[in-house]
Design a binder for these strands. Structure first.
Length: 263
DNA sequence: TTATGAATAT
DNA sequence: CATATTCATA
């Protein structure tokens, strides 16, 4: 309490008699001590601001000029743990990643920790995997790219074919089992409806992804030598597509449509 | 507490 | 763009 009182005195610039707060004192506002224009919060945050400075990398450390408070950073932070250099996903590393990923995928275990274990690469960290995995999924899963609603709406529904599903104005009901398409998307979407739709879409995608991925797994998604090739995703030709889409389980027509339209 | 993954930062 | 980090959530 003694220390606290000192601090308080410092902040409010008042003599440290008793513990009562300024507000408790009725004459607070007219009190002479409060005429000091010092703003307590500013004072505190000001000090904190200079101390909170965090040195982020060794490089920036070495190159940085003197700190605001005039002290030399190198000396002050010498015991700072060195930062790992940015990981480079070489083809070899990525292939290893793919191997683990594809092995785990069927069991639904393609998550960072499991992939890391399977890869058996001590230098890698779980977050390394997580980051790479995020990108990988973006490449492989159209649903993780962009806004699904927007993308769907850009499409024109396929020509009313023989077995056109009955498109009753179903407002994203929880039990919706119809295929999704731009033609039966509700005009307005509630949050709940969006969740249901997303869930439903995932179910639809499941079989599609399985048959595509099993096929893609054997191909080299990441085999380019030059940068632009390496950064681009595996792009099936029409023969591939036909072959894949005719396999069981067959994706629903709307997903085929999505696929044909470049998504 | 630790993992996850979308979002965001570098 | 590639990779890292944050942040809410599980």
């Amino acid at each position: 309490m003694e220390d606290l009182n000192k601090i308080r005195k410092d902040i409010y610039n008042e003599p440290s008699n008793g513990f009562e707060s300024p507000e408790a004192n009725g004459s607070c506002n007219s009190s002479p001590v409060m005429t000091t224009p010092t703003t307590p919060t500013l004072l505190i945050s000001g000090r904190r601001a200079t101390r909170r400075r965090v040195i982020r990398t060794q490089v920036s450390d070495a190159n940085s000029q003197e700190e605001l408070d005039g002290r030399n950073v190198k000396n002050e932070h010498q015991n700072q743990k060195p930062k790992k250099p940015r990981l480079v996903w070489t083809d070899e590393l990525h292939n290893k990643f793919l191997e683990a990923h594809d092995a785990l995928l069927p069991q639904g275990d393609a998550v960072p920790k499991k992939i890391l274990e399977l890869m058996n690469e001590p230098t890698l960290t779980r977050e390394n995997i997580a980051s790479h995995l995020q990108k990988h999924r973006m490449n492989i899963d159209p649903l993780r790219r962009g806004n699904p609603k927007t993308k769907l709406q850009k499409l024109t529904p396929p020509q009313a074919s023989s077995s056109s599903p009955n498109l009753s104005q179903q407002q994203a009901s929880p039990t919706m089992t119809q295929p999704l398409s731009s033609s039966n998307l509700p005009e307005t979407l509630t949050k709940e409806g969006a969740v249901n739709m997303n869930h439903n879409m995932k179910e639809h995608m499941q079989s599609f992804k399985e048959c595509v991925l099993s096929d893609v797994a054997s191909k080299d998604v990441y085999n380019g030598d030059n940068k632009s090739e390496r950064n681009s995703m595996w792009c099936p030709d029409s023969a591939d597509i036909t072959e894949i889409l005719d396999k069981d389980p067959k994706p629903s027509w709307d997903l085929k449509y999505l696929f044909y339209n470049g998504d």
